[in-house]
Design a protein around this nucleic acid. Structure first.
Lengths: 154, 154
DNA sequence: ACGCATACCGATAGACAGTATCAATTAAGC
DNA sequence: GCTTAATTGATACTGTCTATCGGTATGCGT
C-alpha cells in the first residue's frame, strides 16, 4: 500500500474497531437508521476508553485522525440517543460520560474528577411537589452534586 | 457643555442613578471596599429593572453607554457578593437575576422565561445522604427545575 | 458484484460568549 | 486640592462549538 496525504477511509480495509461496547452501541444506532462508519466507531471506542467524565476536546486530542466536526457530531448523536450523558462541572465546563441506563444523577469529585452515580435518590417527586406549590408544572430538571470522593476525602 | 466623542464620566455631573435597591447594593459593596461609580450604578440599576432572568448580553444591549467589559465585570462582582444569582437554562444558556436571600433553587418556565423560587424544598439533606451512600462527601450542588408556570400551563 | 441515493466525512471559516490587556480616568481619603 | 489605586472602555483575543460544502463511502436494491 502506498502512503497518501489523505486520511485512511474504508477503501484500504483498516482493522475494524470492535469491542462488545462499541458493537453494542453501533447496533443500537443501526436500529435507528444511522450508518456504521469507521470514524464513528473510533469516536465510540474513544468514549468507552475514558475512565472518567471527559470534554469534547479530550476526544479530539485522543483522535487526531478524526476531524473535529466529526467528533462533535458523533458526540452529539450519542447524547441524543442516550448512549452518553452530559455532566456539568461547577465552573460550567461541559463533560460527557457513557450513560448507564435510566435517569439518574451524578456526584462529581472536585479533586480527581471521578464521578459516581447517585443511587437511591428520588428527588424527582420532592421537586415536583415543591413545583406544584409554586404553581408550576415540572417537566424536567438538571442536578449535579459536587464534593469529594472516598479516595480524595482529606 | 461641549459635545465630545468621549463618553460621559463624572466630570459633567450627570444625574446620579439612585433608587432604594441600587443604593442598598452600592452600600453593601462599599462596605466590602468597592467604589461607588456611575457605570456600576448603571449596571445595578439595569439589573434591578429586569423583570425576569436575563443574559449578560441583555444588559449590554440595555446599557449601550457602558462598555461590555464593564458590564461583565459588574455582573461578576454582583454574583461574587451574592447580590445576583446565576440561573442555567435547559440549553445551558447562562442567565442572571437579583437574588433573594439565602440558598434556594429556581423553577424556570420554558415558555415565558419567568422564574419562581422553589420554596419548602430541602433537597440538600436528601442529596447529602445519597452522596454518603456513594462514599462521597458533598460540598455543593447545582439544581435547576424546568417546566411551565401557572400562566403558561394552558 | 454493481450502481445509486444519500448519509457522512473533514477542512475551514465563522459565530458566539466571555476574558485579557492597557492607557486613560476617576473615586476616596488625606 | 492632591495622591494613588481602583475602575473604566476600546480592542484584541481565547476557546468552544456550529455552518458550509465539495467530495466520499455506506447500505440497499438489483
Amino acid at each position: 500500500m502506498v502512503a497518501t496525504n489523505f486520511k485512511h477511509r474504508g477503501h484500504d480495509h483498516p482493522a475494524p474497531i470492535s469491542s462488545a461496547v462499541v458493537d453494542d452501541i453501533v447496533a443500537q444506532l443501526a436500529r435507528q437508521g444511522y450508518r456504521d462508519t469507521e470514524p464513528r466507531r473510533l469516536v465510540i471506542s474513544a468514549v468507552a476508553a475514558q475512565g472518567r467524565p471527559f470534554t469534547a476536546e479530550d476526544l479530539c486530542a485522543a483522535l487526531p485522525c478524526v476531524g473535529r466536526a466529526t467528533v462533535y457530531r458523533g458526540l452529539r448523536l450519542l447524547v441524543e440517543t442516550d448512549q452518553v450523558c452530559r455532566v456539568l462541572l461547577e465552573d460550567r465546563e461541559l463533560r460527557y460520560q457513557l450513560s448507564h441506563q435510566g435517569h439518574h444523577h451524578h456526584m462529581l469529585c472536585a479533586i480527581c474528577g471521578a464521578s459516581a452515580d447517585l443511587i437511591d435518590c428520588d428527588v424527582e417527586d420532592i421537586l415536583r411537589a415543591a413545583a406544584d406549590r409554586s404553581g408550576f408544572r415540572m417537566s424536567g430538571h438538571w442536578l449535579e452534586v459536587y464534593g469529594r470522593c472516598g479516595e480524595c476525602a482529606d
